[in-house]
Computed example of a mutant assay.
Amino acid sequence: MPLKTYLQTHFVTRSALAELCEVSAKRLDALIASGAAPQPTYVCGDGLIRSAVFGALPADTGIEGEYFRPEYVRWIQIADSAPSGHEREALVNALSAELEAALATALGDDTSTKARAAEFLPFFFDGTFGLCVADPSSGAGIAKKELLQERLVALTGNGSRIAETDDENRQLLALIDAYALSSMPFSPAEYSRSSRKRLVDDLRLKVWAAAASE
Results as ranks from 00 to 15, higher is better:
Thr61Phe: 12
Asp201Ala: 11
Arg50Leu: 08
Asp201Asn: 11
Phe120Leu: 12
Gln8Phe: 11
Pro38Ala: 06
Val133Trp: 03
Asp80Pro: 00
Val43Tyr: 03
Glu150His: 12
Val53Ile: 13
Val43Gln: 13
Ala33Ile: 10
Tyr6Phe: 14
Glu164Asp: 11
Val43Phe: 06
Phe186Val: 13
Arg116Val: 09
Tyr67Ala: 09
Gly130Ser: 09
Pro136His: 07
Asp126His: 05
Asn169Trp: 01
His10Asn: 13
Glu119Phe: 03
Ala52Met: 02
Gly127Met: 01
Lys197Trp: 04
Leu121Asp: 01
Val200Lys: 04
Leu20Asn: 12
Leu148Met: 04
Ala79Gly: 13
Cys21Phe: 02
Leu148Asp: 01
Leu181Ala: 14
Tyr67Asp: 04
Leu48Met: 14
Leu95Pro: 05
Gly62Asn: 09
Val133Asp: 04
Ala52Trp: 05
Trp208Glu: 15
Leu48Gly: 10
Leu205Gly: 15
Ile32Gly: 07
Leu175His: 04
Glu98Pro: 03
Glu100Gln: 13
Ile63Pro: 05
Pro2Thr: 12
Gly141Lys: 06
Ala36Trp: 11
Asp46His: 13
Glu150Trp: 14
Ser187Thr: 11
Tyr6Val: 06
Glu190Asn: 07
Arg196Gly: 09
Ser183Trp: 01
Ala97Phe: 07
Ala59Val: 05
Glu71Leu: 13
Pro122Gln: 04
Leu175Lys: 04
Lys197Asn: 06
Asp80Gly: 04
Val153Cys: 08
Glu19Tyr: 00
Ala134Gly: 09
Glu66Ala: 14
Leu20Trp: 07
Ile49Thr: 08
Gly157Glu: 00
Ala25Val: 14
Pro188Glu: 07
Ala33Asp: 15
Tyr67Trp: 15
Gly127Arg: 03
Cys44Tyr: 10
Gly55Ser: 01
Tyr67Asn: 07
Ser15Ala: 15
Thr61Met: 11
Ala25His: 14
Thr128Gly: 04
Ala90His: 06
Leu155Trp: 02
Ala16Gln: 15
Ser15Leu: 15
Leu48Asn: 11
Glu98Val: 03
Asp29Asn: 15
Ala30Arg: 15
Glu71Trp: 08
Ile176Glu: 01
Glu22Phe: 00
Asn169His: 01
Leu203Cys: 05
Ala79Ile: 05
Ser213Val: 11
Cys21Ala: 14
Ser187Tyr: 02
Thr128Ala: 12
Gln8Asn: 14
